[in-house]
Every structure is written in C-alpha cells, then in structure tokens.
Design a protein around this nucleic acid. Sequence first.
DNA 1: CTGAAAGCGCTTACAG
DNA 2: CTGAAAGCGCTTACAG
Lengths: 337, 337
Amino acid sequence: MGTIKDIAQKAEVSISTVSLVLNNKGYVGEETRKKVQQAIQDMNYKPSRSARKLATGKTGNIGFIIWEGHFYDVEMFYSQIFLGMEYAARKTDSYVILTTVKEEFDPKKEVPRFLKYNDVDGVALAGRVPHTLVEYLDRQRIPIVLIDYAIPGKNYNCIQIDNYHGAYQAVDHLAKTGKKRIGFVGGTYFHPSIKERYRGYRDALEANNLIGNGMPEEYTFVENVETSPLIGEKGISVLLDRNTDLDAVFCCNDPTAMGAMKEIQKRKIKIPDEIAIVGFDDIPTSGFCMPRLTTVSVPKLALGKEAFNLLNEVIDQPSEPPQVRTIGTFLVKRESA
Amino acid sequence: MGTIKDIAQKAEVSISTVSLVLNNKGYVGEETRKKVQQAIQDMNYKPSRSARKLATGKTGNIGFIIWEGHFYDVEMFYSQIFLGMEYAARKTDSYVILTTVKEEFDPKKEVPRFLKYNDVDGVALAGRVPHTLVEYLDRQRIPIVLIDYAIPGKNYNCIQIDNYHGAYQAVDHLAKTGKKRIGFVGGTYFHPSIKERYRGYRDALEANNLIGNGMPEEYTFVENVETSPLIGEKGISVLLDRNTDLDAVFCCNDPTAMGAMKEIQKRKIKIPDEIAIVGFDDIPTSGFCMPRLTTVSVPKLALGKEAFNLLNEVIDQPSEPPQVRTIGTFLVKRESA
DNA sequence: CTGAAAGCGCTTACAG
DNA sequence: CTGAAAGCGCTTACAG
C-alpha cells in the first residue's frame, strides 16, 4: 500500500509536504497539493495509524464502557447506543473500543486495559456505572462523557435523555385517554433518569387534576434494585393488590413494562381496556410483544452519535466547562395504551 | 508513565535489554532480568502499543464483523458472542473492534475502515455475512474465522454450534414427552445452521418412529427470509391451518419461537398441553416470556472465546489448513415443553 | 511555499 | 549475555 515516502517520491516532493496536505496544515501551493493528492489517489495510500499515533501522541481511539450486567439484559438498549457511536466514528476514521466493568470498581485492582495502556483519547460511559470509575477517569484527566446517567452533585459532560417530558407525555396520554388511577412502577430509584421520569409522571398527574385520594403515593411502587421484568411483575402485583381501581400504569422502562404485562395477563385483566400500560425506551422487543407496547421512544442511535461528537469536542478543548446536552423523546402509540 | 528509556536508565541497562525481557526473548542474565522487572514494577511501566506496532507491524487488534441487521434484532445473541471475545481479548491485552456491514458487500464501494487502514491482524465474522466479504478477506490473505456460519463448498476456519445434536435432543424430548405430530418452522433455510437443525429434527422423528402420514413434509414450514417473530407467527398459522392434529413445534430459533407462541396464544391454544414448543439459542428473553421457553442453549460466551483463540492461532500460523471447531449445546427444559 | 532533520517509543539483527 | 545502531512511518518545529 506504500508509505509516505512512496507518495513523496511519486509526487516529487518531500515527505513533509505530503504530511502537510495529508493533515491540511500549513501552506502548500495549489499545484503541489494537486500532485500530492493525485499520487495518494493513485497508490490508494492510507497513512499508518501507529506511526501517526507515535508522532502525535493521540490514539484515535475512544473507549466505551458499560456495566457488564447490561450485556445480560433482555434489552438491546446499550447496543444501539454503541452502534450510534460506531456510525459516528466511521466518519472520523477512529475506533470505539467497547469494554465492560463490574458493579464495583477499584482502580487498585483492575482497570480496563485501554486505560492502563493509555490507548484511548477519551471515554464514553453509558448508563449506570461505578462512581469510583468516573472519579478515577476525572482524576487521570481523561476526557469523559456520560450517557443517560449523571452523578448527583457532580458536573460532568453528559448526554441526557429528556426523561421528564417523555414521562410527562406518556402519562398525559394515559390521562387524555380517560384513565384516572394511574400507577407508577420502577426500579433503581437512585438513578437520576428514573427520578426524572417519576417527576414527569407526577407533574402530568397534577396537570390533569389526578392528584389526591392516595394518588400518587398509594399508586407508586419503587424499589432500589436493577430494573427488570421481575420488578415489573412484582410492582404491578403490589399495586393491584392495594388498589382495585388501578386503570393504568406507567413503567419506568420497557423491560419493567414487559414484566408488568405478563403479570396483568396472568390475572386475566384486559390490556388496555381494563389496565393500560406504557413503558419507556422503545427497545426492539416492544414492537413484538402482545399486545404491542406503547412506549416513550428514545433515539438511541442519536444518543450515541451526540456522545461521540461531544467527546471529541472535549478531547480537542479539554479546558471548556462541562456540557449537558439533552436529546428529545417521543411517544410511540401502539396497542397497550 | 515513562518509556523504555526510563526503565533502562533506572535498571542501568540498555533499552535493548529491557525490550528483551519485555518480550521474553533472547538470553538475559537472571540478575539483569530481575533488576529490569523491578524497575518495570516500580515505575508501573506499560510499553506503548503504537511504538510496538510500528516496529513489529502487528496491530494487536482483531476485527469483529456482523451484519447490521443483527443490531436491530430483538435478540442479544451476537452481543453475547462479542462479549465472549472481549473476555478472551483481555487476557492477551489486545482489542476487538466491532463493526457492522450491510447485507450486500462491494469492496469497490465501502470496506470496514479497519480493513482499509490495515488496523487488524485478523477478523472474526459472526452469523450470516456477505459471501463477497469473506472472499475479499480471503483474497487479501487476512486471517479469518467464521462463527456459527459456513459457506457451502468453501473451507474456512470456523466455530460451529452443534446444531444437529441440539435439534435432535429438542425433538427427541418432545417425542419422549408423548408428542407425535411435531412441526418445524424456520426462516433463512439457506443458512447451514438451520439446515443442520432441520436434519436433527428429521432424524429424531425417525428415531422415534414418527415419520409417515405426511410427517414431516406436511408439518414443515420454511421460508427463505430472515428468521424473526413474524416468521414464527406465519409458520405456525400455516401449520395449524393445515394440520389439526399438530401437537408440538420445534422452531429454528428463539425469536421464531416467540412469534409462534404469540400466535398460538392468540388462538387460545394451551402451551404446552395442546401444543408444546421448543426453540433454539436460549436468548435472555426466553427466560422471561410466558410461558418460559424450553430451548436449546448455545454457549455464546464460549463461542466467542473459542473464536478468539482460533483466530489467534491462525494469525500465528497462517499456513495451517482450515479448522472447524464445534461447540456443544444442551437442552434447557422450562415451561413450554 | 517547501525541504532537511529530529523525534515519537519501540524491536531486531549485528557485534562483541 | 549485553549494547550501539538502524529502522518502523509518521509529524513538527525550524530554516530558507
């Protein structure tokens, strides 16, 4: 495939010049530039990344870290975010290297190898990740961006989902559809996104004059464990046993909604006539379950792309103050509500 | 973090010597080696990958390619395989770079960037991938291993699932459980794995004296499109309409089984009493659907690890003849059969 | 506007 | 058994 030398020779210039046009730097005569570009074309030349890295110190890689558990979920949520990053990375010819971490992170014990070997210019972290990891990265001055997560009291670059409005719209739709006793079930309540969804739920209730008579307190089930179909089943059970008039439920995410749906069907309750249900995320499964789930759609690819772009900005200008970018959501009306 | 020079200085040897102990090559006196190792320890030194790459020509990366569509599936099948590779890669401090390709591949138009830039030492391809891609890689003499796929008539390194015995066991279980009219529904029949599953199905039928009276011809539904819940719904519908005595169905994979399940339930037919159902793959969702799906479990992490190991062997010894390694499966009995 | 030269951090013959 | 030196393929001041 040739090296920069071959190009220089063919174009009859020095390698410095080739490098300059390659990187679009300095002044190069129009003629010369043309010649060089032609040679590059002709030889199908691609500069060696390793060599470039050695010379510049940049790796051209960015790391992507998620909690290992998300690989065992039923959901394809984080994979989609990753895919969004990969798409963005293609445009810049950089790579995104994915790895997982355990729930607990101790820098003294084990750190992702791309950190250990300094093989990334920055890292994106999606979903719930160990705070110790984030602090570690911060301490090492490695540029980071959090995706769909935030650490209370700390200020990091992050890409957020508009959890509040998503939830608000979902619950508002339920209300507009005639539902009056709308429950909430959710896990990982310490998760900022879940809290925001709850806030949206409450405010939509209030806007529709549905507060009161035990609403929403008696109609809320939250538990501080990982969200999952199991939490959905359990949550709806508790709510159903406690309130015979429950006529709708907003679940903090789709897997939870799936679980709730299963339990509701087990009890031979009709969806959506007797109990309507709406989730959050719009994972692929939601379109296939029965009935098909009405849910708040999160543009996962866009999340990934935005994260990639923001991270690159941070890498280029490390001294800028942290940014928060929020990505909008929209309600997908299907059969369950 | 220091460079090789710092280590050399600290250990009072030349950088050549440091390099030798780093790579466990040549002869180095016991004393010297100790000193060097101590210095490496003390300074927490990690050799620069870029520099090493430049010097050796090896990249230390391997590519992982799947069809883009698998990212939009409901299933977490390929993600798990990827995770298996990532686990294996950790041990060797190499990276696996994941990218997707479209259904059609034309090297003249677009090739994955890590191929274009020569940034991987080899590549693993999982599931159905464009034959033109595989041939392209082969032509470029890039070491490859296929995972759960094969190209008829071609001989490539590959990691296979024991599709035949998996299917056989599944159907045998159905038969032993009293089922007599056992159907088969599947998509992508051109896929070698699916063919093998069908062969297992047939042989198990035969071993249980279930062939005849239209079995299995009348009880088989295959279509040459991507497997999905939709195919499951459609397939079981056709079978049900055609054979009133159908009492079980073996689906070519879990998503298909999910679809079939949905349709069966829609018709108010009892699972497993009236119709038992078993799938293949054991994706996470299978444990959560209702009823929980009996299925053939594929050790996905093991698939990934094996692929990684085989690929590395091929990279080290490119002239060895192609190998096929088969990973066993096992039946997970849950509620649907 | 262009080129010669140093340097990035390694590995690998080659001497000794 | 160990070191001096060339080389891997780039980038980047620095002259001119």
